[in-house]
Computed example of a mutant assay.
Amino acid sequence: MKSFESKSNKQVFIEGIRDGFPIALGYLAVAFSLGIIARKSNFNPIQGFINSVLNHASAGEYAVYTVVAAGAGYVEMAIMTLVVNARYMLMSTALSQKFSSKTSMIHRILVGFTVTDELFAITIKRPGHIKPLYNYAAFLIAVLGWSFGTAFGIIAGELMPIRLVSAFSVALYGMFLACIMPEARNHRIVTVLIIISFILSFIASQASIFSGISSGTKTIILTVVIASVAAIIFPHPEVEDDD
């Protein structure tokens, strides 16, 4: 099997489209529910589409639509979006280690912009170094599904029962599990860490001591703690730079 470094740009782009297509289908369904919320916040389909292109995270978009509906200002909107999306800074930092040392800063920044939970999952499990073009291709097809899903949800409005629309969100969780389970089957440590993450996330969501902390902040804290402890106890062997 060819490494990413030895593949042509065309091959890398096709693989990115291929891997991003199932994610796009999941996003298309899930974004419907966000479209319903956006409609109630007086967003039109074009505004919803543009917002999804620029803010391609369910929690971040939900925060925007919520604060807009509440009549909040731009400062509150910016702070809320920063808090709920802060975990992507951690993902971007981890993902930057997958690139060759010769990868330019502009590519690193642009790839950081494309990061979502699912795109991070399919990229981080790639062996060796990867080309930014793979991320761009996967993001291109995925963000189209996400943005069109939001626009379609706004158009649908309240024509579709809320329970049916909400049921689409199950697809997102199933899709993310499909991304992490292969790695869990190959590495027992990953399996244990996933189980621990589920348990700690449930405790954090139920314990009264954490009731004053937003879900986004809880995610950040748990990610930092679990990842740091795992890195210290089970360090990953370094990948040699062949360039």
Rank of each mutant, 00 (worst) to 15 (best):
I221Y: 14
V170L: 14
L34C: 05
S3E: 13
L159P: 06
T66S: 09
L222N: 09
S169Y: 00
S96F: 09
F234D: 14
I220E: 11
I17R: 04
F168E: 15
P161L: 12
M80N: 05
S8L: 10
P237D: 08
E158Q: 12
T116E: 03
I79C: 02
V64T: 03
S58A: 11
V170F: 07
P127H: 06
Q11D: 05
I180W: 13
A38S: 12
G60N: 06
M80K: 02
G26W: 00
P235V: 04
G73Q: 03
E240I: 05
S52E: 00
I196R: 03
G60D: 02
I37W: 01
L177W: 14
S8G: 15
S101V: 07
L140T: 11
L164F: 02
I122R: 13
L90P: 01
Y65K: 15
Y136L: 14
G16F: 01
H107N: 10
L119E: 11
F210L: 00
A138H: 02
S58W: 10
I226M: 00
F139N: 13
F21I: 15
Q97N: 06
T93F: 01
L144I: 06
A142Y: 01
A86D: 09
S8H: 08
I36F: 04
I162W: 00
M181R: 06
L193E: 11
A72Y: 04
A29P: 10
S3N: 12
L90D: 11
T123S: 11
L28S: 13
S52H: 01
A156C: 06
T217N: 07
I122E: 10
L28G: 10
S100M: 08
G174C: 13
Y74A: 03
K10I: 08
V64C: 07
K125G: 03
V165D: 15
R18G: 04
L200Q: 10
L34F: 02
M175A: 13
I37K: 14
A137T: 13
Q47H: 05
F32N: 10
L119A: 06
F210P: 00
F4K: 12
E238C: 04
I14L: 11
A142N: 06
R185V: 03
S52C: 04
E5T: 05
Y136E: 14
S52M: 02
G153L: 00
S215T: 13
Y173I: 02
V239E: 15
Q47N: 07
A69H: 14
G73S: 05
P127R: 05
Y62P: 11
E183A: 09
A57P: 00
D243Y: 07
A38P: 08
P45A: 09
A63H: 07
G20W: 00
T150C: 08
F202H: 11
S58R: 12
S166A: 09
G112I: 01
F168N: 12
F168Q: 11
N51L: 10
A171V: 02
A230Q: 03
V165H: 04
L172F: 13
F198T: 15
R126V: 02
V67S: 07
H56N: 09
P127W: 01
E15D: 02
